[in-house]
Design a protein around this nucleic acid. Structure first.
Length: 188
DNA sequence: GGTGCGATTGCA
DNA sequence: GCAATCGCACCA
């Protein structure tokens, strides 16, 4: 059912808008063997542009963050702490680097996907998918069961305390109270 | 060419 | 509380 795949217009908006709209959508991954994993997103974070001191794009374009500078609709995958992958959805127009970090989905096929590193592991996402298009291919997003406004909660982003006043901005979006949201209770 | 560290996780 | 583990950003 590729007709359910979200198109370019969904991604080519400000990261904050895309982040809110990603809650409840379905992350889909077709494995090399052909099996498709699906999980409903319940936690994401927006990284809004070069002005955002928490964003990898804050210090300009580098080899690692190059996909963030493209038009929305790509995956930006990187390795943290030498062992965990993180997956972002690139957003906005070309030349305006922004992205949304995918932090948790409801457990796909019984696996835990609570936390950015666990999510990429559960969906078998690594550097081979860095720069991959979400508009075609083995990694994409689909419609899902929407999260109504009354269930959306915004908090500060996790693990970016170095970002000064940007660390305080409420750019993390979660489905309030959901069991698969990562982090300490305070952030739920 | 060398160095320090991170959008995290699991275990003591 | 803290070690694991390595690509890459930055400096020389």
């Amino acid at each position: 059912m590729s007709s359910r795949r979200l198109g370019a217009a969904f991604y080519r908006r400000p990261a904050q808008e895309v982040a809110r709209d990603l809650l409840g959508r379905t992350l889909c991954r077709e494995l090399p063997g052909g099996r498709v994993l699906r999980g409903r997103l319940v936690e994401v974070e927006a990284y809004v542009g070069t002005e955002d001191a928490a964003s990898h794009a804050h210090r300009g374009r580098t080899h690692r963050n190059r996909w963030m500078f493209e038009a929305g609709g790509l995956a930006y995958v990187y390795l943290v702490y030498g062992m965990h992958h993180c997956m972002n959805v690139v957003t906005g127009e070309a030349g305006h680097p922004s992205a949304v970090l995918l932090r948790a989905t409801e457990s796909p096929n019984g696996m835990s996907a609570s936390g950015p590193g666990r999510l990429t592991r559960a969906f078998s996402i690594d550097l081979a998918l860095d720069g991959a298009s979400l508009l075609e291919g083995a990694l994409w997003l689909e419609a899902g069961e929407p999260v109504p406004d009354r269930k959306v909660r915004r908090t500060r982003r996790i693990g970016v305390d170095y970002a000064g006043r940007w660390a305080a901005r409420k750019l993390r979006f979660i489905e309030a109270g959901h069991a698969d949201v990562s982090g300490p209770r305070f952030f739920k």
